[in-house]
Design a protein around this nucleic acid. Structure first.
Lengths: 192, 192
DNA sequence: CAAAAAAGAATGAACGTTCATTTATTTTAA
DNA sequence: TTAAAATAAATGAACGTTCATTCTTTTTTG
């Protein structure tokens, strides 16, 4: 039982080490040797938990995407209006990204590089189903533009990645007011 | 003279080889040996043109960003209305990305990974000055939202990267109608 | 024929991964 | 309950490759 916990801790430490290394120098700087050293473990031990470096990165992706989605939809209540629901989700996503900068930056690296398997990527997309359903509902009600969900995502959610990037580089600090402005822009882009 | 041309050709071949490799497997799969082989050149020859791999990637970034900007602003005429100018630029950007998929995908990898020097990144940003100036003008005229240019960029330009990514993966093919829908969304997001 | 350009071979370092052992824990037997 | 046996967990060293870069030699050119 304590043994199981120790295993979980070790896996967590390995994922955390990988996250940090990828963020600070890209996938190329996250070598198995460095990951092991940071997690205080032998390189060989990594292979007790992950079958390859690719598997390690894939699992990290699903892990992070999972906790992102959990945060995003934690406040979701199905009897809210569509706009209110969207606002709750959007703000929760922004909050997660601001509070978990490493996770956020890792996810945007994953979205734009070949570092994640296409299969794993698809798996990660499923986490966002509630949002797609909400948009469907909004379209039926005539308050969301009747266009592809990819367009809706591209213009209302994806921009967060850019803003977080600018925030990290201190080029556009994201205070509460900017976040609210940004939400307004997001909503204006998809509302009919 | 023919000598100079041969040098230029070789440099171009090296940049092109790097572009292709980075796109097909990320920066980690663009080794100097592979780049040399594809460009039909010895590894050592690369160092006659670029002082390091980092320099090679930086120069490629500026090169590609430069031709992107050139395409983006080629139709720009300063006596158009703000909305018309924005539309011309937006459509030209989209066209460039659709016609030069490798270049487009490379640029979005660069924007979200630490593979480019911060200094070089800043340099690349300068290419977009005409767009920032246009937004300034639009804000003064009261037809563009009076918010940070980073927000304007995030919601009206940055989404293209996502759409191109979806197009490349055949998840959301970008025909002319989708492009026009997308422009409408972009404009709705930033117009007052 | 001299000088510049390019080539290929060679460099040590670092890569992902595996291996033979050692260390720690659990089970068995007395 | 304890000592021995068996199993599981974890290790550091080492594998063959590949890395970015440099060095020496050959080829090309004016």
């Amino acid at each position: 039982m304590a043994q199981l916990q120790k295993s979980i801790d070790k896996r967590t430490a390995l994922l955390k080490a990988t996250l940090s290394l990828v963020n600070n120098g890209g996938i190329q700087s996250a070598s198995m040797a460095k990951v092991a050293k940071i997690a205080n473990v032998s390189p060989a031990t990594i292979y007790l938990f992950f079958e390859s470096k690719q598997d390690l990165v894939n699992q990290l992706y699903l892990d992070v995407k999972g906790s992102f989605a959990e945060a995003a939809f934690s406040q979701y209540e199905s009897d809210d209006e569509v706009k209110k629901s969207f606002e709750k989700i959007w703000i929760a996503m922004a909050a997660f990204k601001l509070e978990n900068k490493e996770e956020a930056s890792f996810l945007s690296q994953c979205d734009n590089t070949p570092m994640i398997d296409e299969e794993t990527r698809q798996e990660g997309l499923k986490y966002l189903t509630p949002l797609f359903d909400l948009w469907s509902k909004g379209i039926k009600e005539g308050i969301v533009k009747d266009i592809s969900p990819y367009l809706l995502y591209a213009f209302s959610i994806y921009p967060m990645a850019f803003l977080m990037n600018m925030d990290n580089r201190a080029l556009c600090p994201l205070g509460e007011n900017v976040i609210n402005e940004a939400f307004q822009v997001a909503w204006d882009s998809i509302r009919v």
